Amino acid sequence: MIDKVIYFPTDKYFKTAAHIEHTINKGKAAICTINSEGAEENRSQSLKGLPTKQGYDRDEFSMTFCDEGGTGAEIEYAKPADNRSAGSWISYQVDQLQSGTKVLIQMK
């Protein structure tokens, strides 16, 4: 059961949207089960062995604050402006949600 649907604005954050769409098309679930407490561990697992690259962020999908994040997340190097703005937008959408809330991410 889905508790909330987020309509991600592809026209605003097109690089991040392309990464999310590509990852979902490869078979990764578009559902995020909120688990903010597990975000740091998931980030550690998803970025393990992937070096930083000057001028880029490492964008994860599924996101680290989701149960589905962590090991097996799809990582892509992304320009910070798009990645961080998109991350802030998503955080604003889910900040008040309780752990265990299932969120469906759809492109708009």
Rank of each mutant, 00 (worst) to 15 (best):
K15A: 12
M63W: 15
T101N: 09
A18C: 00
G55S: 07
K48L: 11
T10Y: 10
A29W: 00
F8V: 02
N35M: 04
N25T: 06
D11R: 14
G69P: 08
D59Q: 09
S85N: 14
E76L: 09
T16L: 02
K108D: 12
A39K: 13
K108V: 08
L47S: 11
A30H: 12
M63F: 15
Y56S: 05
F61L: 02
N35L: 04
K53G: 00
H19D: 01
G70K: 11
L50S: 03
F8E: 00
E60Q: 12
I34S: 08
E37N: 08
S44Q: 15
K108L: 10
P51Q: 13
D67Q: 15
N25G: 02
G70Q: 10
S85H: 11
Q54V: 04
G38L: 07
P80K: 13
W89S: 02
Y77A: 01
G70F: 13
I31C: 01
L50Y: 13
S85V: 01
C66K: 07
H19A: 10
G87M: 14
A30V: 01
L104E: 15
T52D: 10
I105G: 00
A29H: 03
N35E: 11
E74Y: 15
Q54C: 01
A18D: 09
T10S: 15
D67I: 14
Y13A: 05
I90S: 00
K53T: 00
D82C: 03
A30F: 04
S46H: 14
A39F: 11
G100Q: 08
Y77H: 04
G87N: 13
K53A: 02
N25D: 06
K102F: 05
K15L: 12
V5D: 05
I105T: 01
A29I: 07
R43K: 14
S36Y: 13
K26R: 09
G70T: 02
G72S: 05
N42M: 09
G49C: 03
C32I: 05
A73K: 13
H19F: 03
E21I: 09
A78E: 12
T23M: 02
K12A: 06
I90M: 14
A29P: 07
N42E: 10
D3I: 07
E74I: 13
K28F: 12
A81I: 06
T52H: 08
Y77D: 02
M63L: 09
